[in-house]
C-alpha cells in the first residue's frame, strides 16, 4: 500500500514537469514578454524604454533559458525559466504583474471559495443521490421516464441562466437575500445562501441522471436477484445491497473533485462578487495578468493530480476487492 502511494507520487513528478514546460512555452516562448508589455501598456505611444522598464519591474527582462552574462550556477538561475517556472515547484508564485504577492492572495482567497464549494458539494450530493434513489425505486415506470426527461431538460439549461435567473428572481424581485457581496465571519452566510442554492439546483439535472445510471447498472446485477430471492424488501435491497455497491463509484467520483474545490467556481464567484480564487482567476484573465494565470494553471494541475492520487487511495480503502488483494 505504501509503496503504491509512493509510486503514484513519483509518477506525479514528470506530469508536473510537463505542465511546467507547457505553461512556460505558452507564456514565454509563443508570446515573448515584449508582446505582453505592449498589450499591457497600450499599443501606441510606447517607447522601447517603457517596455524595458515594465519588463524589469516584473523580472521578464531576463533571458529565457541561459543567461550568458552571468557565471557559474547563476547562468541558469538568473533566467525566466528558473525564476518563473522552476520556482513553482516549491509553490513560490512570486508577484503578480500588478505587484501583489500571489501566494499571499491565494492563501487569503481560498477560504471564501471553500465556503461556497463545500456546502454546494455536500448539499448537491444529498439532493441528487436521494432523487436518484427515488427514481431507481420507480424504475421502468412513467415516473422514471419523465424524471429522466426533466433531468435532461434541466441539464440543457445554461449555467448562466441559473445564475442570472436566480439572482433576478430571488435577489431582485423577492429581495430575500443580498444579490452579491461578501463579508467576514458568520455575516458571510447570508451572502452564501443564494450562490449555494443556485449551485445545487444547477447540478440537479446532470447529477441525478448520472447517479440514476450508476444505480440502475447495479440493480441489474446478479447479486441483487440473490438479495431478492432471500425475500428482502425492495427498500432493504436498495439500501443494503445496491447503495453499498453504488457508493464505490460515487465516492471515488467525489474524491477526485475534492482538491479542486479550492479553485472555486469561476462563474458563481464573479457573478456574486465573492472574493475567492474563482473570481481571482477571472479578474486575472480580464486584466491579462499572466503571472496569476500561470500560477493558477500550476496550482490547478497540482490539485488535479492530488485528486487522482486520492481517488486511487480511496478505491483501495472502500473496495474490499482491491483492499484485500
Amino acid at each position: 500500500m505504501i509503496s503504491y502511494i509512493i509510486r503514484r507520487l513519483l509518477y506525479a513528478i514528470p506530469i508536473l514537469i510537463g505542465v511546467n514546460i507547457i505553461t512556460f512555452i505558452l507564456f514565454f516562448v509563443v508570446n515573448s514578454p515584449d508582446h505582453m508589455a505592449i498589450s499591457q501598456l497600450g499599443e501606441k505611444h510606447t517607447t522601447p524604454e517603457q517596455i524595458e522598464e515594465w519588463k524589469r519591474e516584473r523580472g521578464y527582462h531576463l533571458p529565457l533559458l541561459v543567461n550568458e552574462t552571468e557565471t557559474g550556477i547563476e547562468k541558469l538561475t538568473e533566467t525566466i525559466f528558473f525564476q518563473k517556472s522552476i520556482k513553482l515547484f516549491v509553490f513560490d508564485f512570486g508577484n503578480s504583474d500588478s505587484g501583489r504577492n500571489i501566494g499571499y492572495d491565494i492563501s487569503n482567497r481560498m477560504w471564501p471559495s471553500l465556503a461556497i464549494a463545500v456546502p454546494n458539494l455536500i448539499l448537491g450530493l444529498l439532493v441528487t443521490i436521494t432523487l436518484a434513489l427515488i427514481i431507481a425505486f420507480f424504475r421502468a415506470t412513467y415516473i422514471d421516464y419523465w424524471a429522466v426527461v426533466i433531468c435532461v431538460a434541466l441539464m440543457s439549461i445554461s449555467a448562466l441562466f441559473y445564475i442570472i435567473g436566480g439572482q433576478f428572481v430571488i435577489g431582485k424581485l423577492l429581495q430575500v437575500v443580498p444579490i452579491s457581496g461578501y463579508d467576514t465571519g458568520l455575516e458571510a452566510i447570508k451572502f452564501l445562501i443564494l450562490p449555494v442554492i443556485i449551485g445545487v439546483v444547477g447540478g440537479i439535472g446532470s447529477g441525478t441522471r448520472w447517479y440514476r445510471t450508476i444505480f440502475l447498472e447495479e440493480i441489474n446485477k446478479d447479486y441483487v436477484r440473490t438479495a431478492r430471492s432471500k425475500g428482502l424488501s425492495e427498500q432493504l435491497v436498495l439500501f443494503r445491497h445496491v447503495l453499498r455497491n453504488a457508493l464505490i463509484p460515487i465516492l471515488t467520483g467525489v474524491v477526485v473533485v475534492l482538491p479542486m474545490l479550492f479553485m472555486g467556481s469561476l462563474l458563481v464567484e464573479s457573478f456574486f462578487g465573492i472574493p475567492g480564487l474563482g473570481s481571482y482567476t477571472i479578474d486575472a484573465i480580464n486584466s491579462q495578468d499572466f503571472a496569476i494565470v500561470r500560477s493558477m494553471v500550476y496550482l490547478g494541475s497540482v490539485l488535479y493530480i492530488i485528486g487522482l492520487i486520492l481517488t486511487d487511495i480511496s478505491y483501495t480503502l472502500v473496495d474490499p476487492r482491491i483492499r484485500l488483494n
Partner: peptide, 12 residues
C-alpha cells in the same frame, strides 16, 4: 444461481 461470483454481493 449459475454464476457464484456475480451472484454474491462483492462488498458485503
Amino acid at each position: 444461481f449459475q454464476e457464484p461470483m456475480t451472484s454474491l454481493n462483492p462488498v458485503v
